[in-house]
Amino acid sequence: MDSTRFCVRCGRETKPEELINGLCIDCYLKHHGVFKEKPRVKVVVCPKCGSWYFKGVWHQPLDLREVIRRELLSELYRFLYSEIRVLEVDVASDIRKISAGEHGVEAVFTLEVAGKHVARIRGLVAVETEYKVCDKCMRRTTGSHKALVQVRFDPPEETGELYREVSALLHSMGLENSIVEVEERRDGMDVKFDDVIAARRYVDVLARKYGARTSESFKSVKYDFQAGKWSGVVTISVRIPVIKENDVVKYRGSIGVVKHVGDGSLKILLLETGVEVEARLSDYWSNVLRKPREVYVDSKVYTVTAVDKTTVYLLNEETGELREHPLTPGNYGLKPGDRVIILSDGEREVVVKKE
């Protein structure tokens, strides 16, 4: 009988393909072992925000056990024999003293041995913990930033609810960890980011949702010889049109009233024709859509006294003033007794039912 069918250590009969260097799996684990040296990791954690540093990058905060687990999954191979492959690691304890002058954790390793066996091994891992302030917290402390988003509203006088929406987006998008500072201004706000990608994500949403017009510039600060490029601050200018429901606007030269504002679009009732059209908020920047300051709303309220095929007859009951106005498609529904107001853009007047 072939001698390779027996474990050279305990003599147990074993299938040849299951032997590892002449040993059965039990003897291999007991007498040979899977580690060529005690596993150890160094964990670098920011004391301010809990971020952890690994392979040159700061990562989002995690539970310390999970940080250790992830580092072991990546680095444990350095402490194992070449025939061992890591399948999973479970950190089974918090950091505690494991020997004189050394702290660590207990962990359970799921390993593949020589491509033939799966074994679960419980062992100790030495852990060195270093606390170091991360780049983001350092920039927050010093006020330095990589990107500046300048949000401005047009016109700036009516920004109340819209300002709150735009500000709340910073939190609903989960960008808090990238924000260095938010400064409220009379006509908008300035948001400083320590991450250019996060700043551009925010700006993209503002453009898509609110029809914002954007422009970007870069101001170099110093040359990074190691990276071979200039470092500096990206400044993104964002202008948002302030248009709300019931606002009077001009769309392609016609006076209308905004009936609905959605993501990047709005519905406008054209008063002269009575037709409802859909427009893009971004049309504001090409003057296709305007919020004209010259539109005048007469404060007087008139009562419709009669309507014929061509004319609407109006009476101001307070002053006794009588007016006649051409009947347009937008006024076909008017009837005696309706109360109306008059809008004017300086060129023509439009009669609108008072709601």
Results as ranks from 00 to 15, higher is better:
4 T>G: 12
7 C>K: 03
11 G>M: 11
14 T>W: 01
18 E>L: 12
27 C>L: 06
28 Y>V: 04
32 H>V: 13
33 G>W: 08
36 K>V: 08
38 K>W: 03
38 K>P: 04
60 Q>Y: 04
65 R>W: 05
65 R>E: 10
67 V>S: 02
70 R>I: 11
85 R>I: 13
101 G>A: 05
105 V>W: 00
110 T>L: 12
114 A>P: 02
114 A>W: 13
125 V>A: 06
130 E>P: 00
143 G>F: 03
147 A>C: 09
152 R>Y: 04
154 D>R: 14
154 D>T: 12
156 P>A: 05
159 T>V: 11
161 E>V: 10
181 E>C: 06
182 V>W: 10
186 R>W: 13
190 D>Y: 13
192 K>H: 13
193 F>P: 01
194 D>M: 09
199 A>M: 05
207 A>I: 00
213 R>F: 11
224 D>E: 08
225 F>R: 07
247 D>F: 05
249 V>S: 01
252 R>P: 02
255 I>M: 12
255 I>R: 03
259 K>A: 02
259 K>Q: 10
264 G>F: 03
265 S>A: 14
275 V>A: 09
283 D>P: 04
290 R>K: 13
294 E>L: 08
304 V>Q: 03
304 V>Y: 01
310 T>M: 11
321 E>T: 07
325 H>M: 14
331 N>L: 15
334 L>Q: 07
343 L>A: 07
352 V>E: 03
